[in-house]
Computed example of a mutant assay.
Amino acid sequence: MRGAFLLPVLGCGFALTTGCAIGKSDTFTFTADLPPGFAYQAIAVYEPAKGETCTVPGGRGTEVGFNRKWRETYQPDSEILLYRTVSGCPLTVSRIKLEITAAYGVDWGNVSADYAAVVIRDELDAPYRRTFNAVGESTFFGQCQWMFRTMGKPRIIRKLLDCKKTDAQGEVGRGRPFSAYTLDQLAGKTVRMMIKLVDEERPAIGGTWVRFPNGWKRCMGKSFEDQDAYCFGNYKDFSTFKMPDGRICTIYPGCTE
């Protein structure tokens, strides 16, 4: 994810026209409660303020990144400016692009991610606008699940992260984790993304694994070199596969039967 350098922020001279008041915060906090080993990256996207006709050449400086190096330094709280000025153009934050990321192995490539978003508008119909509690927090929810498959000649296990939005009770909805607010709701507030991890993993591609009481077995397919290796009704011939840590296994996730 690409970040951008910060340029001077407009004072309240501009902000007064967009809902700022003397002494009122011009930032809000985005934070996340994630499963162990998970992190998020965020990009705050800025667009010309309402009524402005200016543009930023090439869009340079209209995006600000957070947790870009999440494997080295991760901060769950991101302080996000509501207003910025770039190339003389007054901007307001319009959305937060979020990437939910996790590693499933020690190799650098053993990482997968899925997406979430926060949308910010000048106006929103009530059904789409989230509210805040008495302490100024608003929480939206989601769940992620690991999906596994094999790739390459050794049939190495690779995992994909699949994230969906849920309600507070865990009922799964359509689409990825998402929330929406109006600009005038956010000053001094906290927006929290709460993600749970589904306990059970599942195959990423249907018809390629068979479930047994103690785990999943990989269908052989036409031969061990068959990269697709669909079962096609053959539930007797299975292949070994290679775990991310190098073990050769016959059943997932326990490795040995």
Rank of each mutant, 00 (worst) to 15 (best):
6 L>S: 13
6 L>N: 11
10 L>A: 13
10 L>S: 11
11 G>T: 11
12 C>G: 12
12 C>P: 11
14 F>W: 12
16 L>C: 14
21 A>P: 00
22 I>F: 10
22 I>P: 03
22 I>C: 09
24 K>F: 05
25 S>Q: 09
26 D>E: 13
26 D>G: 08
27 T>S: 07
30 F>V: 01
35 P>L: 13
36 P>L: 08
37 G>R: 06
38 F>H: 07
39 A>E: 06
41 Q>L: 10
41 Q>E: 14
43 I>K: 06
44 A>N: 00
47 E>P: 08
49 A>M: 12
50 K>W: 10
50 K>S: 13
51 G>F: 11
53 T>M: 14
54 C>N: 04
60 R>L: 15
61 G>K: 01
61 G>C: 04
65 G>N: 07
65 G>W: 02
67 N>P: 03
69 K>W: 15
69 K>I: 15
70 W>T: 00
73 T>P: 00
76 P>H: 07
76 P>R: 09
78 S>Y: 02
78 S>K: 06
79 E>G: 10
80 I>F: 01
82 L>Q: 03
86 V>A: 02
87 S>D: 08
89 C>G: 04
90 P>Q: 01
90 P>S: 03
101 T>F: 01
107 D>T: 13
112 S>L: 05
115 Y>G: 06
115 Y>S: 10
117 A>T: 09
118 V>T: 02
118 V>Y: 03
120 I>R: 00
123 E>A: 15
123 E>R: 15
124 L>P: 00
127 P>S: 08
128 Y>M: 13
129 R>E: 09
132 F>G: 03
134 A>N: 13
138 S>H: 11
139 T>Q: 02
141 F>I: 05
142 G>M: 05
143 Q>G: 04
143 Q>F: 01
144 C>H: 01
150 T>E: 02
152 G>Y: 04
153 K>V: 12
155 R>C: 08
157 I>L: 11
157 I>K: 01
159 K>Q: 12
160 L>P: 01
167 D>P: 04
169 Q>S: 14
174 R>E: 13
176 R>H: 14
177 P>Q: 13
178 F>I: 04
183 L>G: 01
185 Q>H: 10
188 G>M: 06
188 G>P: 01
193 M>C: 04
193 M>P: 01
197 L>G: 05
198 V>E: 09
198 V>C: 06
198 V>T: 12
199 D>G: 13
203 P>Y: 02
203 P>H: 04
204 A>K: 06
205 I>K: 03
206 G>M: 12
207 G>Q: 10
208 T>H: 12
208 T>M: 14
209 W>Q: 05
209 W>S: 00
210 V>L: 10
212 F>L: 12
212 F>G: 10
215 G>H: 05
217 K>E: 03
220 M>Q: 14
221 G>L: 00
225 E>H: 11
226 D>M: 08
227 Q>R: 15
232 F>N: 14
235 Y>L: 15
235 Y>I: 15
236 K>T: 10
236 K>G: 10
238 F>M: 04
239 S>Y: 02
241 F>L: 08
244 P>V: 09
246 G>W: 05
249 C>M: 07
250 T>W: 08
250 T>C: 11
251 I>R: 02
253 P>T: 05
253 P>F: 06
255 C>R: 05
257 E>P: 06
